[in-house]
C-alpha cells in the first residue's frame, strides 16, 4: 500500500514542483493585489464623477400626466462590461457550497449600474440635456464561466426650459 502512495506522490511531484507552486501562488497574490487596487481607483473616480453630475434629474416614469415644456434630445444608451478578478471568483465558488448572499457579485453589479448611470448622465450633458426620463436598466451576463456582467442604461434625454 505504502509503495502505491509513494508512487502517486512521486508522480504528482513531477508535475507540481516547489517552483511551479510558488509561481502560481505568486501570480494569485499579484492578481488579488492589482485587482483590489484597480477596484479602489475605479470607485474613487466613480464617486468624483457622481458628485459633479448631481444636478441632472433622472426619472423612470413617462411624465404622462404632466405638461412637459421641453425639447427632445433623443434616446441615449450607455453600457459597461465589468468583470471580477478570477481569484475572488474562486471564493465566490466556495460561497456556493453554503448558499446565501454573494457579496462579491452584489458589489460587481452595483458598481456596473452606477457606472452606466454616470456615463448616461455624461452623455446627456454632451447633448445639452438636463433631464433623463423613463430610465430603463438591464443586466445581462456575457459569459457563464467567468463573471462578466453587462449593464445597460437607456432613457430619453430632454432639455427642460
Amino acid at each position: 500500500m505504502d509503495s502505491v502512495v509513494e508512487i502517486i506522490i512521486a508522480e504528482i511531484s513531477d508535475f507540481i514542483t516547489v517552483e511551479s507552486l510558488s509561481w502560481s501562488i505568486g501570480i494569485t497574490l499579484i492578481g488579488i493585489i492589482i485587482g483590489y487596487w484597480r477596484e479602489k481607483q475605479f470607485i474613487k473616480q466613480l464617486e468624483a464623477r457622481e458628485a459633479v453630475l448631481e444636478d441632472i434629474t433622472i426619472t423612470n416614469h413617462q411624465m404622462k400626466n404632466q405638461e412637459i415644456d421641453a425639447d427632445t434630445q433623443g434616446l441615449i444608451d450607455c453600457s459597461i462590461v465589468l468583470s471580477r478578478d478570477l481569484f475572488r471568483t474562486f471564493f465566490i465558488f466556495l460561497r456556493r457550497l453554503f448558499g446565501g448572499n454573494v457579496a462579491g457579485y452584489e458589489q460587481l453589479v452595483d458598481l456596473a449600474r452606477r457606472e452606466a448611470i454616470v456615463r448616461m448622465k455624461e452623455e446627456a450633458v454632451l447633448r445639452g440635456a438636463n433631464w433623463v426620463i423613463n430610465l430603463k436598466l438591464t443586466t445581462h451576463s456575457l459569459n457563464d464561466k467567468s463573471p462578466r456582467v453587462e449593464v445597460l442604461a437607456y432613457g430619453t434625454a430632454l432639455f427642460r426650459k
Binding site: R38, L82, L142, L152
Partner: peptide, 27 residues
C-alpha cells in the same frame, strides 16, 4: 486579451466597445 484582463478584474473595454457598436448598428 479579455481573458487576461479577467485575471485582475475591472472593465473589459473591448467588450463594452463591441456592445455599444452593435447597439448603434441595431438602432
Amino acid at each position: 486579451g479579455a481573458f487576461f484582463k479577467n485575471l485582475v478584474g475591472g472593465e473589459l473595454h473591448s467588450y463594452t466597445e463591441l456592445m455599444s457598436e452593435a447597439r448603434q448598428e441595431a438602432i
